[in-house]
Nucleic acid binder design. Sequence first.
DNA 1: GGCCTGAATGGTAACCGGTGTCATTTTGCA
DNA 2: TGCAAAATGACACCGGTTACCATTCAGGCC
Lengths: 366, 366
Amino acid sequence: MVPRGIFRMTDGETPDNGKPAKSLRDEFVDRRPTINDVARLTGVSKKTVSRVINKSPAVKEHTREEILRVMHEIGYAPDPQARGLAFRRSFLIGMIYDNPNPQYVVNMQQGLLDGMRSTGFELVVHPCDRASPTFLEDVRNFVERQKLYGVILTPSVSEDERVPPILRQIGCEFIRIASVSLDEPEHMIVSHDHLGGAAAGRHLAELGHTRIGFISGRESFRSSHERRRGLERALGEAGLALDDELVVQGAYTFESGYDCARDLLQRPVRPTAIFAANDEMAAGVLQAARSLDIRVPDQLSVVGYDNFQLAERLWPRLTTVHTPTREIGRRASTKLVNPQSAAEIEQQDPRALPSLVIRDTTAPPL
Amino acid sequence: MVPRGIFRMTDGETPDNGKPAKSLRDEFVDRRPTINDVARLTGVSKKTVSRVINKSPAVKEHTREEILRVMHEIGYAPDPQARGLAFRRSFLIGMIYDNPNPQYVVNMQQGLLDGMRSTGFELVVHPCDRASPTFLEDVRNFVERQKLYGVILTPSVSEDERVPPILRQIGCEFIRIASVSLDEPEHMIVSHDHLGGAAAGRHLAELGHTRIGFISGRESFRSSHERRRGLERALGEAGLALDDELVVQGAYTFESGYDCARDLLQRPVRPTAIFAANDEMAAGVLQAARSLDIRVPDQLSVVGYDNFQLAERLWPRLTTVHTPTREIGRRASTKLVNPQSAAEIEQQDPRALPSLVIRDTTAPPL
DNA sequence: GGCCTGAATGGTAACCGGTGTCATTTTGCA
DNA sequence: TGCAAAATGACACCGGTTACCATTCAGGCC
């Protein structure tokens, strides 16, 4: 039996003005259809339509289909603002970052958007300055005012332990993206930088290098620690050790890579290989080698980390560790907007691990 | 005379429960203050508070100050969703782009955010595929569903003439960012790429080059046209002409730059200088020269366009044309959220013009 | 000085487009 | 037929805005 009213086109109280029959769509040329229109056209209450929107199981299959049909016909889509107001929560995901590398930012954004595609969520970007005295207040205001559905924290914001308590207090979901687990797993996506560091170390050890220099990022950067830890582990497994003398501290910038490499390469006994903790610094290493007439890879092997576009544009083309930033981003946003499917993905798909890309800056030592 | 009620802390109908005096803020630890709270605490109606929020002149100065004081004290900020719902318009700005270059995207975003800082607007990023059959539908849905306040179109989406009519129909403000004016000025921010092209051409002509190659972007890219037009003008002013034989078409990618340069450099009489329409392709030119044992800049001068970070990482460091992408972005968003101040900026500040950055890839011909 | 008029200001109710709570109707099954 | 469970609906509410009306105030006029 057909539920009464399901097929009525107009409500009993809406007078039929006798105009020639026209497509349902025509009514909405200068006005977007609302939930009330859907309810009126299907003859149910707006509450029932709301149930369909929210995929409540408490709607008879037949009713649901009819409502969906009408929605489709008149081109209805719920208003995220109205929904958000009632939910006390928007359908916006915030990406909070303080990262100077454009390539990272864009790859991450792309990945986040991949995971949010056709879910109705949108991405709001929010760069910030972690060193600013108003940093925490900025974050709080952003999240609270926009009533964000969730937040993605990327390095180095993700490493700031002052942020999670604020988000918990507000009641905003968040995912931290970091090189090592800092939290309960449901809040983390880990990039396992120690594995990448180990791959680089193994590669250099296999080539026969024993005097290996390491250029780190700032003390406060977890990723740099992890990459070093991996390097040390791989060298250890090859019966080697990382000489503290050959570890110098950079700052993830091209210039710092240049300076650190000049330092290392002008030592009485210089290293035969340098592992720079990111590609920017590795580019600086190449520049420094050139300035000292040291040929790469014959006289010096160089390994970077990140595998940004830059690595392939350099000369020689840079051997580096690829980080699947986009894939990591996709997982992070999926975890936020679709937790159950995220769990599946994580188990089966190993693509989110770093991997070595061997190009032209590494060779056996002379 | 003090308006009645202004200083009352509680409404007459709200019973004083006799608890010890506490900061006004304490009331809002688990609940954000609303316009009703502000109205109650100041003893005015919410309508008056609303007038203050919207900077209506029809509020007595004294009343306004008092309301602002209370707002500040309890940490009130209007809910953008509720406001948006009533306004039928959100406080979100969309950035719609289909641009493969991360550096451009990030610089542009940064600039847009600069112009929106502390205006209460937020930036929603929306990459898209202009070649997709659903492209226009995607754009429409995005803008219409989110009820965007305004949209920024960047190349090459900004060059698509099908988009503006859709936005006009929806009633959404937009700004097109392009290399040349395509529209009424109030919808455009122009990057004047022909000036940059001319600067590059002038530089090469002054160095004494006469056989100059040009690697363009795809036919459909306005920027490439403009850069070429500028080159031709500068050469013309120097009594030279661009030889059509030496113009080859690339695609703004590293690989296309490499291929085109190999083509040009293996001609019987090769050019002594190459102007590539962007830095990516210029990087490809350097690679190609190296592969053919042609020394830069001694045997070949190279000029790029964009001045992205890459330009300084290359070896030799690339001479290129700087585009003030971030500044352009700042102007674009300012124009959207604060049109009157935008007009002033545009007149006085010339920083938004391209300028030549001379590095190490250009020298007089042998 | 009192009255009238219009401008300035404040109040009330309805509305924007959805959701929550809880009551009511319908259905399936013993 | 009765009853519990499933399906649906009525109504208030989310936090702002507008439309419209009521009140207050100032100035001009007689």
